[in-house]
């Protein structure tokens, strides 16, 4: 069983929901990332989504765009992110780590070389924003052979037919994007999400994490009531952006926010 499957099974048994923080690797500087990942796990994170910076993040709002620009300005690209994943794994053999980013860095490395490198780094999942299931077979097969899950996005306007495609190609969990738009925008409409989750569950048994619009302990709790996992990204990265002159303060605020979310989700 993959680390992701094991984690979601364990959470289900204990009646808890997954807290899934997203941060952009190398933001605001490369050495900041791995210690932060460990602290996030200690604060209650169940799964880590580690963003691979890309020069053209088409599906991201300004907060994550700027995080990518900060990381790229210090040359954190896919190869560097893979070494960070490897370093994280040295002292944490249990927390699933998912790489999230865009397809081009993987294309340029070559699918097979990437799959091998991800296996060496002991990465658990790969979420490629601009790789829909129809184009994903080659990549998914190579990852599956190495025990790595391909995570797919679901949107409010995704049809039942497409959910079945995600079910066929995806594993680990599915990431439901709760609004039409880019990351960091708007507020979550939980009634809407709940209705959509019903359609998703009719078409797949893969656990569903919900993101986009999770800003604080309260929204995290509301989402946890209806989904299998809660993804929080822009709200964490905003802390980094607000404290560029004092990254340690950013870390303190990120950990405090995650702890408050964990507490609210478990209460």
């Amino acid at each position: 069983m993959s680390r992701l499957a094991a984690k979601f099974a364990e959470l289900k048994t204990s009646g808890r929901k997954a807290l899934i923080p997203f941060i952009t690797a190398g933001d605001p500087y490369p050495q900041f990332t791995v210690p932060l990942l460990h602290e996030m796990v200690a604060a209650g994170a169940d799964v880590i989504e580690l963003g691979v910076p890309f020069s053209d993040p088409m599906a991201d709002g300004p907060v994550i765009q700027r995080a990518s620009e900060r990381a790229l300005s210090q040359r954190t690209g896919l190869r560097k992110v893979l070494t960070m994943a490897m370093e994280f794994r040295k002292t944490d053999q249990t927390t699933p780590l998912v790489l999230m980013g865009y397809l081009n860095p993987i294309e340029m490395m070559g699918y097979e070389d990437f799959a091998n490198a991800a296996q060496r780094a002991d990465v658990d999942g790969v979420l490629t924003v601009d790789l829909p299931p129809e184009e994903s077979k080659e990549c998914v097969d190579l990852l599956r052979e190495r025990g790595i899950d391909q995570i797919f996005l679901l949107a409010p306007n995704t049809t039942a037919e497409r959910i079945q495609k995600m079910d066929a190609y995806g594993s680990g969990y599915l990431y439901y994007v709760s609004l039409k738009g880019v990351t960091g925008a708007g507020n979550i409409d939980t009634a809407d999400v709940e209705q959509k989750l019903q359609l998703i569950r009719e078409n797949t048994n893969i656990p569903v994490g919900v993101g986009f619009g999770v800003k604080d302990a309260e929204t995290a709790k509301t989402v946890a009531n209806i989904a299998d996992g809660v993804v929080v990204g822009s709200a964490l990265i905003s802390k980094i952006e607000a404290n560029l002159d004092n990254p340690e303060q950013a870390k303190t605020e990120i950990i405090a926010l995650l702890k408050s979310m964990r507490q609210a989700m478990d209460s």
Binding site: V129, D130, L131, E135, L153, T158, V177
Partner: peptide, 11 residues
């Protein structure tokens, strides 16, 4: 060619 976009654009 092909269609390489985020799921939100698919519909």
């Amino acid at each position: 060619g092909g269609i390489f976009v985020a799921e939100t654009l698919m519909p």
